[in-house]
Protein backbone atom coordinates (compact mmCIF):
# COMPACT_ATOMS: atom_id res chain seq x y z
CA UNK A 1 0.00 0.00 0.00
CA UNK A 2 1.45 3.41 -0.90
CA UNK A 3 2.16 5.56 2.08
CA UNK A 4 0.28 8.76 2.66
CA UNK A 5 2.70 11.61 3.14
CA UNK A 6 1.47 14.83 4.75
CA UNK A 7 4.74 16.63 4.09
CA UNK A 8 7.11 15.97 1.22
CA UNK A 9 10.15 18.20 0.67
CA UNK A 10 12.72 17.59 -2.04
CA UNK A 11 16.06 19.29 -2.46
CA UNK A 12 15.48 22.36 -0.32
CA UNK A 13 18.24 24.89 -0.69
CA UNK A 14 18.74 28.25 0.96
CA UNK A 15 21.64 30.65 1.16
CA UNK A 16 22.06 33.91 3.01
CA UNK A 17 24.39 35.89 0.79
CA UNK A 18 27.37 33.54 0.49
CA UNK A 19 26.46 31.39 3.46
CA UNK A 20 24.89 28.15 2.30
CA UNK A 21 22.49 27.30 5.10
CA UNK A 22 20.50 24.45 3.50
CA UNK A 23 22.30 22.26 1.01
CA UNK A 24 19.48 20.14 -0.34
CA UNK A 25 17.15 18.86 2.35
CA UNK A 26 14.83 15.93 1.61
CA UNK A 27 12.08 15.10 4.05
CA UNK A 28 8.93 13.00 4.13
CA UNK A 29 6.48 12.86 6.97
CA UNK A 30 3.81 10.20 6.97
CA UNK A 31 0.35 11.32 7.89
CA UNK A 32 -0.40 11.01 11.60
CA UNK A 33 3.22 10.61 12.67
CA UNK A 34 5.94 12.72 14.27
CA UNK A 35 9.17 13.50 12.50
CA UNK A 36 11.90 14.97 14.65
CA UNK A 37 14.46 17.16 12.97
CA UNK A 38 17.42 16.63 15.24
CA UNK A 39 20.49 18.78 15.04
CA UNK A 40 22.80 21.12 16.90
CA UNK A 41 22.50 24.88 17.00
CA UNK A 42 22.94 26.41 13.55
CA UNK A 43 22.21 23.16 11.69
CA UNK A 44 19.39 24.76 9.71
CA UNK A 45 16.35 23.52 11.64
CA UNK A 46 14.62 26.89 12.00
CA UNK A 47 15.36 27.76 8.39
CA UNK A 48 13.74 24.50 7.26
CA UNK A 49 10.66 25.07 9.40
CA UNK A 50 10.35 28.65 8.15
CA UNK A 51 10.42 27.48 4.55
CA UNK A 52 7.88 24.72 5.15
CA UNK A 53 5.53 27.12 6.94
CA UNK A 54 5.64 29.69 4.06
CA UNK A 55 7.63 32.29 6.01
CA UNK A 56 10.74 32.06 3.92
CA UNK A 57 11.19 31.38 0.22
CA UNK A 58 13.62 28.59 -0.61
CA UNK A 59 16.19 29.17 -3.35
CA UNK A 60 15.47 25.75 -4.77
CA UNK A 61 13.45 22.61 -4.11
CA UNK A 62 9.86 21.39 -4.07
CA UNK A 63 7.46 21.06 -1.19
CA UNK A 64 3.99 19.58 -1.00
CA UNK A 65 2.01 19.92 2.20
CA UNK A 66 -1.33 18.19 2.58
CA UNK A 67 -1.53 18.12 -1.21
CA UNK A 68 -0.85 21.84 -1.62
CA UNK A 69 2.18 23.00 -3.55
CA UNK A 70 4.05 25.35 -1.23
CA UNK A 71 5.13 27.64 -4.02
CA UNK A 72 1.85 27.83 -5.94
CA UNK A 73 -0.71 27.63 -3.14
CA UNK A 74 0.80 29.21 -0.03
CA UNK A 75 -2.63 30.16 1.30
CA UNK A 76 -3.77 26.55 0.98
CA UNK A 77 -0.73 25.51 3.00
CA UNK A 78 -1.43 28.20 5.60
CA UNK A 79 -4.96 26.91 6.07
CA UNK A 80 -3.76 23.44 7.10
CA UNK A 81 -0.73 24.23 9.25
CA UNK A 82 -0.16 25.47 12.77
CA UNK A 83 3.24 26.93 13.63
CA UNK A 84 4.87 27.33 16.98
CA UNK A 85 8.13 29.11 16.32
CA UNK A 86 11.31 29.04 18.34
CA UNK A 87 10.34 32.27 20.09
CA UNK A 88 6.83 32.83 21.42
CA UNK A 89 4.76 34.80 18.90
CA UNK A 90 2.16 36.34 21.15
CA UNK A 91 0.90 39.87 21.64
CA UNK A 92 2.30 41.11 24.94
CA UNK A 93 -0.37 43.69 25.62
CA UNK A 94 -3.36 41.48 24.94
CA UNK A 95 -4.62 38.90 27.41
CA UNK A 96 -4.26 35.19 26.74
CA UNK A 97 -7.91 35.00 25.79
CA UNK A 98 -7.72 38.03 23.48
CA UNK A 99 -4.69 36.52 21.77
CA UNK A 100 -6.51 33.26 21.10
CA UNK A 101 -9.72 34.86 19.89
CA UNK A 102 -7.85 37.26 17.63
CA UNK A 103 -5.83 34.47 16.02
CA UNK A 104 -8.98 32.38 15.69
CA UNK A 105 -10.60 35.12 13.65
CA UNK A 106 -7.47 35.52 11.54
CA UNK A 107 -7.59 31.76 10.93
CA UNK A 108 -11.06 32.55 9.54
CA UNK A 109 -13.10 30.80 12.19
CA UNK A 110 -16.52 32.20 12.91
CA UNK A 111 -16.77 34.46 15.96
CA UNK A 112 -18.62 31.73 17.87
CA UNK A 113 -16.09 29.04 16.94
CA UNK A 114 -13.16 31.30 17.84
CA UNK A 115 -14.66 31.94 21.28
CA UNK A 116 -15.53 28.31 21.92
CA UNK A 117 -12.13 27.03 20.81
CA UNK A 118 -10.34 29.66 22.91
CA UNK A 119 -12.09 28.54 26.08
CA UNK A 120 -11.44 24.86 25.33
CA UNK A 121 -7.77 25.47 24.72
CA UNK A 122 -7.34 27.72 27.76
CA UNK A 123 -8.78 24.89 29.81
CA UNK A 124 -6.71 22.25 28.06
CA UNK A 125 -3.44 24.14 28.52
CA UNK A 126 -4.06 25.09 32.10
CA UNK A 127 -4.27 28.79 31.34
CA UNK A 128 -7.83 29.46 32.40
CA UNK A 129 -6.84 31.32 35.58
CA UNK A 130 -4.47 33.59 33.68
CA UNK A 131 -6.77 34.02 30.68
CA UNK A 132 -7.76 37.58 31.60
CA UNK A 133 -4.23 38.83 32.29
CA UNK A 134 -1.87 40.56 29.87
CA UNK A 135 0.64 38.14 28.41
CA UNK A 136 3.37 40.46 29.72
CA UNK A 137 2.77 38.93 33.14
CA UNK A 138 3.12 35.30 31.94
CA UNK A 139 6.05 33.03 32.76
CA UNK A 140 8.13 31.42 30.01
CA UNK A 141 6.26 28.14 30.32
CA UNK A 142 2.86 29.86 30.15
CA UNK A 143 3.91 31.78 27.05
CA UNK A 144 4.98 28.57 25.35
CA UNK A 145 1.69 26.92 26.19
CA UNK A 146 -0.27 29.90 24.94
CA UNK A 147 1.83 29.99 21.79
CA UNK A 148 1.11 26.32 21.14
CA UNK A 149 -2.58 26.80 21.97
CA UNK A 150 -2.75 29.60 19.41
CA UNK A 151 -1.30 27.42 16.68
CA UNK A 152 -3.96 24.80 17.46
CA UNK A 153 -6.93 27.16 17.41
CA UNK A 154 -8.14 26.01 14.02
CA UNK A 155 -7.29 22.36 14.76
CA UNK A 156 -4.83 22.18 11.84
CA UNK A 157 -3.95 18.68 10.60
CA UNK A 158 -0.25 19.60 10.32
CA UNK A 159 1.75 21.17 13.11
CA UNK A 160 5.28 22.58 13.11
CA UNK A 161 7.02 22.91 16.44
CA UNK A 162 10.42 24.61 16.46
CA UNK A 163 12.26 23.58 19.62
CA UNK A 164 9.08 23.38 21.68
CA UNK A 165 10.85 22.57 24.94
CA UNK A 166 14.03 24.63 24.74
CA UNK A 167 14.25 26.83 27.79
CA UNK A 168 11.47 25.10 29.70
CA UNK A 169 11.86 23.77 33.22
CA UNK A 170 11.67 19.97 33.54
CA UNK A 171 8.04 19.96 34.67
CA UNK A 172 6.84 22.14 31.77
CA UNK A 173 8.93 20.03 29.47
CA UNK A 174 7.15 16.84 30.47
CA UNK A 175 3.80 18.61 30.21
CA UNK A 176 4.69 19.68 26.68
CA UNK A 177 5.63 16.11 25.74
CA UNK A 178 2.24 14.91 26.99
CA UNK A 179 0.47 17.49 24.83
CA UNK A 180 2.51 16.53 21.78
CA UNK A 181 1.65 12.88 22.28
CA UNK A 182 -2.04 13.74 22.61
CA UNK A 183 -1.87 15.74 19.40
CA UNK A 184 -0.63 12.83 17.30
CA UNK A 185 -3.05 10.61 19.16
CA UNK A 186 -5.80 12.90 17.87
CA UNK A 187 -4.63 12.51 14.29
CA UNK A 188 -2.21 15.39 13.70
CA UNK A 189 1.00 15.15 11.71
CA UNK A 190 3.87 16.84 13.52
CA UNK A 191 7.28 18.04 12.45
CA UNK A 192 9.27 19.09 15.46
CA UNK A 193 12.84 20.26 15.77
CA UNK A 194 15.00 19.61 18.76
CA UNK A 195 18.54 19.65 20.02
CA UNK A 196 17.62 17.12 22.67
CA UNK A 197 18.39 13.57 21.76
CA UNK A 198 16.18 12.11 24.46
CA UNK A 199 13.26 14.18 23.23
CA UNK A 200 13.55 12.86 19.69
CA UNK A 201 13.94 9.33 21.00
CA UNK A 202 10.87 9.63 23.19
CA UNK A 203 8.46 11.37 20.81
CA UNK A 204 9.38 10.74 17.22
CA UNK A 205 8.30 7.96 14.89
CA UNK A 206 11.11 8.96 12.58
CA UNK A 207 14.19 11.05 13.15
CA UNK A 208 16.09 13.07 10.57
CA UNK A 209 19.51 14.07 11.83
CA UNK A 210 20.56 17.36 10.32
CA UNK A 211 23.96 18.99 10.47
CA UNK A 212 25.45 21.78 8.40
CA UNK A 213 22.31 22.09 6.27
CA UNK A 214 22.14 18.43 5.24
CA UNK A 215 20.20 15.43 6.43
CA UNK A 216 23.01 13.10 7.45
CA UNK A 217 20.87 10.21 8.63
CA UNK A 218 17.25 9.26 8.72
CA UNK A 219 15.20 6.51 10.25
CA UNK A 220 13.52 5.33 13.41
CA UNK A 221 15.41 5.74 16.66
CA UNK A 222 16.19 2.02 16.56
CA UNK A 223 17.46 2.14 13.01
CA UNK A 224 19.75 5.00 13.91
CA UNK A 225 21.04 3.12 16.88
CA UNK A 226 21.95 0.25 14.57
CA UNK A 227 24.42 2.63 12.98
CA UNK A 228 26.61 2.45 16.01
CA UNK A 229 26.19 -1.25 16.39
CA UNK A 230 23.85 -3.05 18.68
CA UNK A 231 25.82 -2.29 21.76
CA UNK A 232 28.67 -0.19 22.95
CA UNK A 233 31.58 -1.66 24.83
CA UNK A 234 33.17 0.46 27.48
CA UNK A 235 36.66 -0.50 28.67
CA UNK A 236 38.55 0.93 31.62
CA UNK A 237 42.27 0.60 31.08
CA UNK A 238 44.25 -0.23 34.21
CA UNK A 239 46.44 2.47 35.75
CA UNK A 240 49.57 0.42 35.22
CA UNK A 241 49.07 0.11 31.44
CA UNK A 242 49.81 2.66 28.75
CA UNK A 243 46.53 4.31 27.72
CA UNK A 244 47.93 5.70 24.44
CA UNK A 245 49.06 2.25 23.49
CA UNK A 246 45.64 0.80 24.26
CA UNK A 247 44.11 3.42 22.03
CA UNK A 248 46.42 2.37 19.22
CA UNK A 249 45.55 -1.26 19.63
CA UNK A 250 41.83 -0.69 19.08
CA UNK A 251 42.84 1.71 16.31
CA UNK A 252 39.94 3.62 14.76
CA UNK A 253 37.35 1.48 16.43
CA UNK A 254 37.00 3.77 19.41
CA UNK A 255 33.88 5.91 19.31
CA UNK A 256 34.89 7.89 22.29
CA UNK A 257 38.14 8.28 24.16
CA UNK A 258 38.30 9.67 27.64
CA UNK A 259 41.92 9.68 28.78
CA UNK A 260 41.15 11.23 32.15
CA UNK A 261 38.88 8.42 33.20
CA UNK A 262 40.94 6.01 31.08
CA UNK A 263 37.82 4.99 29.15
CA UNK A 264 37.57 3.61 25.64
CA UNK A 265 34.18 3.01 24.09
CA UNK A 266 33.84 0.84 21.06
CA UNK A 267 30.85 -0.01 18.88
CA UNK A 268 30.11 -3.73 18.95
CA UNK A 269 29.45 -4.91 15.45
CA UNK A 270 30.38 -8.57 15.59
CA UNK A 271 28.84 -9.81 18.83
CA UNK A 272 30.74 -11.96 21.29
CA UNK A 273 33.39 -12.84 18.75
CA UNK A 274 34.21 -9.19 18.27
CA UNK A 275 34.47 -8.71 22.03
CA UNK A 276 36.86 -11.64 22.29
CA UNK A 277 39.02 -10.25 19.50
CA UNK A 278 39.39 -6.91 21.18
CA UNK A 279 40.27 -8.39 24.52
CA UNK A 280 42.79 -10.74 22.88
CA UNK A 281 44.44 -7.89 21.03
CA UNK A 282 44.78 -5.88 24.24
CA UNK A 283 46.15 -8.85 26.12
CA UNK A 284 48.71 -9.55 23.36
CA UNK A 285 49.89 -5.94 23.71
CA UNK A 286 50.27 -6.40 27.44
CA UNK A 287 47.48 -4.04 28.37
CA UNK A 288 45.44 -4.78 31.43
CA UNK A 289 41.74 -4.06 31.50
CA UNK A 290 40.26 -3.00 34.82
CA UNK A 291 36.61 -2.83 33.95
CA UNK A 292 34.29 -3.79 31.16
CA UNK A 293 30.66 -2.91 30.52
CA UNK A 294 28.18 -3.11 27.69
CA UNK A 295 25.70 -0.33 26.94
CA UNK A 296 22.68 0.02 24.74
CA UNK A 297 23.62 2.85 22.38
CA UNK A 298 21.94 6.21 22.89
CA UNK A 299 21.22 8.83 20.30
CA UNK A 300 24.21 10.67 21.69
CA UNK A 301 26.34 7.91 20.31
CA UNK A 302 24.57 8.12 16.98
CA UNK A 303 25.20 11.78 16.84
CA UNK A 304 28.81 11.44 17.67
CA UNK A 305 29.26 8.74 15.08
CA UNK A 306 27.52 10.73 12.37
CA UNK A 307 28.84 14.20 12.92
CA UNK A 308 32.19 13.57 14.55
CA UNK A 309 31.29 16.05 17.25
CA UNK A 310 29.21 15.88 20.34
CA UNK A 311 25.73 17.36 20.55
CA UNK A 312 26.66 19.95 23.11
CA UNK A 313 24.11 20.92 25.69
CA UNK A 314 25.92 24.24 26.15
CA UNK A 315 24.47 25.44 22.87
CA UNK A 316 21.03 24.98 24.33
CA UNK A 317 21.68 27.21 27.29
CA UNK A 318 22.79 29.94 24.93
CA UNK A 319 19.53 29.69 23.02
CA UNK A 320 17.54 30.17 26.21
CA UNK A 321 18.11 33.88 26.34
CA UNK A 322 14.92 35.50 25.21
Amino acid sequence: MPKNYAIVAKGLKKSYKKLEVLKGIDLRVEQGTILALLGPNGAGKTTTVKILSTLLAADDGQVTIHGYDLHKEPDGVRSVIGLTGQYAAVDEYLTGRENLEMMGRLYRLSQADAKRRSEELLQQFDLIDAAGRSVKTYSGGMRRRLDLAISLIAAPPIIFLDEPTTGLDPRSRIAMWEIIKQLVGAGATILLTTQYLDEADLLADKIAVIDGGKVIAEGTADELKQHVGNERLELTIAKGSNFQKAQKVVDGEALQVDSKRRLLSIAMTGGVKHLQEILNKLQAAGIEVDGLSLHKPTLDDVFLQLTGHQATKDDVAEEDKK
Binding site: R117, E120, A155, G187
Partner: peptide
Protein backbone atom coordinates in the same frame (compact mmCIF):
# COMPACT_ATOMS: atom_id res chain seq x y z
CA UNK B 1 -12.85 16.48 26.19
CA UNK B 2 -9.11 16.50 25.66
CA UNK B 3 -9.38 14.27 22.65
CA UNK B 4 -12.00 16.42 21.05
CA UNK B 5 -10.24 19.71 21.64
CA UNK B 6 -7.11 18.50 19.96
CA UNK B 7 -8.79 16.49 17.18
CA UNK B 8 -7.12 17.51 13.94
CA UNK B 9 -9.42 18.94 11.30
CA UNK B 10 -12.36 19.02 13.72
CA UNK B 11 -13.26 22.59 12.82
CA UNK B 12 -13.94 24.37 9.55
CA UNK B 13 -13.23 27.96 8.55
CA UNK B 14 -16.03 30.24 7.41
CA UNK B 15 -16.55 30.75 3.71
CA UNK B 16 -16.70 34.35 2.50
CA UNK B 17 -15.56 36.42 -0.43
CA UNK B 18 -11.97 37.69 -0.60
CA UNK B 19 -13.19 41.27 -0.09
CA UNK B 20 -14.98 40.26 3.12
CA UNK B 21 -11.74 38.91 4.51
CA UNK B 22 -9.78 42.06 3.66
CA UNK B 23 -12.19 44.02 5.84
CA UNK B 24 -12.46 41.34 8.51
CA UNK B 25 -8.68 40.96 8.86
CA UNK B 26 -8.19 44.73 8.92
CA UNK B 27 -10.88 45.15 11.54
CA UNK B 28 -9.40 42.44 13.78
CA UNK B 29 -5.99 44.12 13.63
Amino acid sequence: MAEQTLQAGSIQPEKHSAAYWVFSDSWVL
